[in-house]
Write a protein that binds this DNA or RNA. Structure first.
Lengths: 195, 195
DNA sequence: TATGTTCGTTAACAAAAGATAATAAGTGAA
DNA sequence: TTCACTTATTATCTTTTGTTAACGAACATA
């Protein structure tokens, strides 16, 4: 069983050719964060210039709508990265709260420290592009589901492509991520069972 | 009036400190593409590893849904970048067609040439990160509108934040971008006029 | 200018989603 | 185990959207 850091080191080697032994500058700034179920990692309104790798667990980013309900921007699990894009990209307090939907362990590093490392060790640069492009691709694919599919189709897609999340995350959060109410998701599930 | 290239050179200088005179390696590979209204730039099913800056005009990316209707991933105009993320990020033929919604002029460069330039002239690297992060931020904001707002609210947002597009683009494309039918958008507009 | 074509609106109906409330099932903590 | 709280389902009603079709206006082109 490979550890999270070993996985990251392997990816680093594939992308940059830097060996695990030479990866110290990059991993020196990394620290581990443990979160209990439902615990908040980044509260709405705060500034967090951290980038975190999910070693284990699940993180949901959500904001609160005008009507008081919450709206889920994304739910990510093991092997994915999270960060407050408001803080890092838009230089503003986070309009989203990031919290754990299961006991979660993160490997986090300060984005500005990371910037310095990229500047002083340009060999790591491909890693940054890899993650940015990966996230951009995933995010575009996410938009695609909203314009090409109905709520029921989006739920079906979720079940087939992210069955791990569907099994581990309460339906109300899945509904919120699909842009519908929990009541509506329950009806969709009922319709699906009937056929 | 600043030309498109001058604007890009100014941005380059802000981000990297490279002067316009020293920007030749970057701009040497750039070529100009003119498109008539409705003309296709990247057809669905093709591979295009080009990155293009919209000097003037409007580009829409769309795919065809199961029911035959088309679904719009995004509509971009002057000053924005477009590229086939299927080709460049996912290494697969484009599931989207990119076409002009007005007479359009693009400044395009081959992505692989660009990669070589970034490799041989690392000083340009901040430019790449700037655009990737800008696009990632915009794309996340786009998802946000789908989970936090109703179709009517999404249209209202579009009218206030992108009035240029609303005025220049036929409603049926706006509807498709909002994830609703043209009929439904027409009803939304009617409801809005009544209040 | 004439003439097809495309586009936006409206109508009618079916289907789905939102809002609210009640209830059952499941969960966690004392 | 008990009890409170959370979550999922179901019901009812209202609102909105999808679908299809018809119509007129706007548009482009011959």
């Amino acid at each position: 069983m490979m550890s999270a850091i070993e996985k990251l080191q392997e990816l680093l080697f594939e992308l940059t050719g830097v060996s695990a032994e030479d990866s110290l500058p990059l991993f020196a700034g990394v620290s581990m964060v443990d979160l209990g179920n439902t615990q908040t990692y980044i509260p709405m309104g705060s500034v967090s210039r951290k980038v975190a790798y999910i070693q284990s667990g699940i993180i949901r980013a959500y904001t609160v709508k005008a009507n008081g309900d919450d709206a889920t921007l994304f739910i990510r699990n093991e092997g994915q990265f999270i960060a407050s894009h408001d803080s890092i990209i838009f230089n503003q307090p986070s309009r989203f709260t990031y919290h754990a939907l299961a006991p979660t362990t993160l490997l986090e590093i300060d984005y500005d420290v990371l910037e310095e490392i990229f500047k002083s060790h340009p060999v790591y640069e491909p890693l940054r592009n890899f993650f940015l492009m990966k996230m951009l691709g995933e995010t575009l694919t996410h938009i695609e589901t909203f314009v090409t599919r109905s709520p029921e189709e989006r739920y079906r897609t979720l079940v087939t492509t992210q069955s791990d999340l569907v099994n581990r995350v309460p339906d109300k959060y899945l509904a919120s991520m699909l842009g519908i109410t929990p009541v509506s998701l329950s009806r969709i599930r009922k319709r699906m069972h009937q056929k």
